[in-house]
Design a protein around this nucleic acid. Sequence first.
DNA 1: CCTAATGTCTCTAGTTGCTTGAGGTTCAAG
DNA 2: CTTGAACCTCAAGCAACTAGAGACATTAGG
Lengths: 137, 137
Amino acid sequence: MFSIGDISRRTGVKVPTIRYYEQLGLITPPQRSSGNQRRYSAGDVKRLAFIKHARELGLPLDAIRELLRLSENPGELCADADRIAAAHLKVIRERIASLQGLERELQRIASGCSAEHVRDCYVLQSLSDHSLCNEEH
Amino acid sequence: MFSIGDISRRTGVKVPTIRYYEQLGLITPPQRSSGNQRRYSAGDVKRLAFIKHARELGLPLDAIRELLRLSENPGELCADADRIAAAHLKVIRERIASLQGLERELQRIASGCSAEHVRDCYVLQSLSDHSLCNEEH
DNA sequence: CCTAATGTCTCTAGTTGCTTGAGGTTCAAG
DNA sequence: CTTGAACCTCAAGCAACTAGAGACATTAGG
């Protein structure tokens, strides 16, 4: 039996976040001590670690909810889990591509300013005037 | 004199977002028609376009607020504007690097599953067991 | 000039994934 | 038995909007 602080240290998930996950229904309400404090089992720790790991990989909570649901039915086909992972990979790749566009543009703008005063600042001019840009965004 | 819908179409910023920016003090409250509707000047359009462009580049609103303040004092040194742009570029690069780490890991996980059933699913196993990972995250 | 359609007004609440705080109770060590 | 840390609930705050309700304004067509 672990207190909420115990599983927080074990999983790296902060205490208020654990309570928040419980509120969302991602983890089931654990047993309580006689004084109404949460007492977790080893299974609860595993489940929370799963959530933590998935969050570190950037998966949104509703995808995690679905993965948890799947992992509770070991006999089901795992195509759904693969699909969720693949969809998320796609999202991440799109996000990277978009950020790389911004990176190029911002790099160009930020390195293009050789002015001293705000009046001639290329950064500010670029922001004012979209036509100074190379790419779409 | 432009209505809020006019400048929305001109800048691509949605109507409720314009009102939201006014509420935050990013744009000054415009004049009003006799019937209490907002009426904007050409200067307001420029300012809003500036904000839009900066948002498209991913700058947070408080950085934009600072850039707007700078651009109103043309005699000041523009080092601050350059610094804001450079700092944001750094943030973007870090975000890209972090996402690329996730991409590699998720790619590995997602392509490593050749199981049929959830019980043997490599995706779910990887999420349960952090030690199956190659990199930190 | 009237009417209908569209635009605009304010205000509130919802989104995602938490974090922070207030005000109070319980637990564990000494 | 006391003290200090950990825990409890509930509410609100963060970024950056978006969505909806219910009411008023504007404008184009007839």
